[in-house]
Design a protein around this nucleic acid. Structure first.
Length: 273
DNA sequence: GCGATCCTGGCC
DNA sequence: GGCCAGGATCGC
């Protein structure tokens, strides 16, 4: 479900949790645990949340003392801060209860996401975070750095490149399709047949797509909401994603759908060369 | 680098 | 019943 803009929106919406102590913690027996055991999670009961951070699509709940908690929402994960008396939906895997009778719930029907712990406040000791590429807004992440990273994967199609979290962290299927459209690049193009200038354009388009997504509070296609239940509005500004057979909103032409690596890509042949 | 795989649910 | 879904990992 959530890509970087959605996770960032959730992070911001959960700011009221900072400073609160986890009075009680409940972990489902089928919770998707990553690189840890149930006790690593349940032992965090009693700890105080000092900060909420994000790295790529990971949300970090920093606690007063390590280890910290981290969450990845996968395809169907949600985080909700609600009153503890609200009905508990199916597939609720983690509940962090606070003294004011509210709780943070992690809900994930498909369990493609997961929860884990890390000792480093940036999550750097967590395997899949350690392997992430730079953040889109990292000041050191210049076009030449991005091009150099891309050149290590000369055989990749540009669609796979944009989705590859080791090269640039945060894009998912929506923002990858939109970035390729704004960069005017055909998703089936291969890195080795792409100029440095084109790759630099792709980075700029990806950064733009992510910034826009954050500004609009994420994309609600179906059921994405932030921690307080608010929908995003980025869906009103998409140019190609899920628009097969329609024209781009800027009137540049018809949108086609192809399948790459088992996933849909929407793109506009009139624009993307 | 690619395809299969992990899951549940919604829609046709 | 089949197909599809905001993701990532693990084999070959």
């Amino acid at each position: 479900m959530p890509e970087l803009p959605e996770v960032e929106t959730i992070r911001r919406s959960l700011a009221p949790l900072v400073g609160r102590r986890i009075a009680r913690l409940e972990l489902s027996p089928v919770a998707p645990l990553r690189h840890c055991g149930a006790h690593d999670i349940t032992a965090r009961a009693g700890a105080t949340i000092t900060d909420l951070a994000r790295r790529g699509k990971f949300l970090l709940l920093r606690l007063e003392h390590a280890p910290h908690l981290l969450v990845h929402l996968g395809m169907s994960g949600r985080l909700r801060h609600v009153g503890a008396d609200e009905a508990v939906p199916p597939h609720t895997h983690l509940r962090l209860r606070f003294a004011d009778d509210t709780e943070l719930r992690y809900i994930d029907p498909r369990r493609f996401g997961g929860i884990g712990v890390c000792n480093d406040p940036t999550g750097a000791d967590f395997p899949s975070i350690a392997q992430l590429g730079p953040e889109f807004d990292d000041a050191d992440f210049t076009p030449s750095v991005f091009v150099a990273r891309c050149r290590r994967h000369q055989g990749l199609q540009l669609k796979a490149l944009t989705l590859n979290q080791h090269i640039l962290a945060g894009l998912g299927n929506i923002y990858a399709c939109e970035a390729l459209y704004h960069a005017r690049l055909r998703p089936t193009r291969v890195v080795r047949d792409t100029t440095d200038a084109e790759l630099a354009r792709l980075l700029g388009a990806a950064q733009h797509a992510l910034r826009l997504g954050i500004a609009y509070g994420g994309t609600t296609l179906k059921d994405y909401v932030d921690g307080l239940g608010h929908r995003g509005t980025m869906q009103d500004f998409l140019h190609v994603y899920d628009r097969e057979g329609r024209t781009t909103p800027d009137g540049h032409g018809p949108v086609e759908r192809i399948v790459q690596h088992g996933r849909s890509t929407w793109w506009c042949p009139n624009v993307q060369i």
